[in-house]
Design a protein around this nucleic acid. Structure first.
Length: 324
DNA sequence: ATTCCCTTCCAG
DNA sequence: CTGGAAGGGAAT
């Protein structure tokens, strides 16, 4: 734990992108997308210092470097993020100089460390979910790349994926407790994706403010139609994920490793598919950086200004300061 | 090193 | 109170 994440700064591909210096004129649908920028002026998330430095982002922040408690392993966490929305990943209400909300001194005294619960932004969750849908296990490199996309630490990505797997697994178990010997792939309908009540994402009830069904999706969700091939050539240059990782999944190997198997087929169709060819991943697209700017333009249709900035921190986005 | 699994405990 | 990020332990 101490050493924990080996967050090697791998942010390089963005440099190329940054040069493009694409400027977008965004017009959020209804100009009210995630208006709820509300109170918290500078949302932020924790992230390891390793990455922290390079991505300048709206550096203006760092207003009050949240003094994170004496958390040993959270020492590597820094606060910083771009404004996103109401769900802004703000962390830990400031200890409030004056009234430390009784920070469980007893616990601290007992050696218990104070936890800080990060709240990921919508866009971060979107990227993560988007990836998780088609890939349940990431190798080191992939996690690092993913973490760089949105200023998350490797550790956070890893933890998030682990938690997602457990959540999905739990959900599945509850929904097919009796695996009627059906050896076939347990088509789970894990509705967990996009059901983050904290944000606007919410698929379960068809309440998708931002990236609602933009059509453009092929009816084959959860089918290995486009998925299978897209991932097969996506190369797992990582080492052992194929062997060790998913082979060890005892409870439901097929569902998991199936890089394409997504836990919630019909339940989560709303998803933006910028280009439904080789890679539909936001991150993947970004990495290729070639046609990235079209992607951004695309995304501008569905994301709010803040979200765009959130997703493409290194782009100079021409935004209209529409905030409340 | 990773994973699963359970637990802890904060944020909403 | 719940959801979920993170801590920690055991197994691999």
């Amino acid at each position: 734990m101490s050493t924990g994440e080996g967050d090697v700064s791998t942010k390089t591909r963005f440099n190329a992108l940054a040069r493009l210096n694409i400027k977008l004129a965004l017009c959020p649908p209804g100009s009210k997308a995630p208006s709820s920028r509300d109170s918290s002026p500078m949302p932020e998330i924790y992230r390891p210092e390793e990455n922290y430095a390079s991505l300048q982002m709206s550096s203006a922040e760092t207003p009050h470097a949240e003094t994170i408690s004496p958390l040993p392993s959270s020492m590597d966490l820094l606060v910083q993020d771009s404004p996103d929305s109401s769900t802004s990943p703000r962390v830990k209400p400031p200890p409030t100089s004056g009234e430390e909300r009784t920070v469980r001194k007893e616990d601290m005294a007992q050696g218990k460390k104070q936890k800080i619960r990060t709240v990921f932004s919508q866009t971060q969750l979107y990227v993560l979910n988007d990836r998780f849908q088609r890939q349940k296990y990431l190798n080191l490199q992939q996690m690092q790349e993913l973490s760089n996309i949105r200023n998350l630490s490797y550790k956070q990505v890893k933890t998030w994926f682990q938690n997602q797997r457990m959540k999905c697994k739990r959900w599945q178990k509850n929904h097919w407790p009796k695996e009627s010997k059906s050896n076939s792939t347990p088509t789970a309908e894990y509705p967990g994706f996009y059901s983050y009540h904290q944000g606007y994402l919410r698929n379960t009830s068809g309440n998708l403010p931002i990236w609602s069904n933009q059509t453009r999706n092929n009816p084959n969700w959860g089918n290995q139609t486009w998925n299978s091939q897209s991932w097969s050539n996506h190369s797992w240059n990582g080492q052992s994920w194929s062997n060790h990782s998913w082979a060890s999944q005892t409870w439901c190997p097929q569902a998991w490793n199936n890089q394409l198997q997504n836990c919630g087929e019909e339940s989560l169709q709303p998803q933006i598919q910028f280009q439904q060819n080789s890679t539909s991943d936001l991150e993947s697209i970004l990495e290729t950086s070639g046609e990235s700017h079209s992607v951004i333009q695309q995304s501008a249709k569905y994301f709010s200004t803040q979200q765009i900035m959130d997703l493409f921190p290194n782009y100079s986005v021409n935004i209209q300061p529409e905030d409340v």
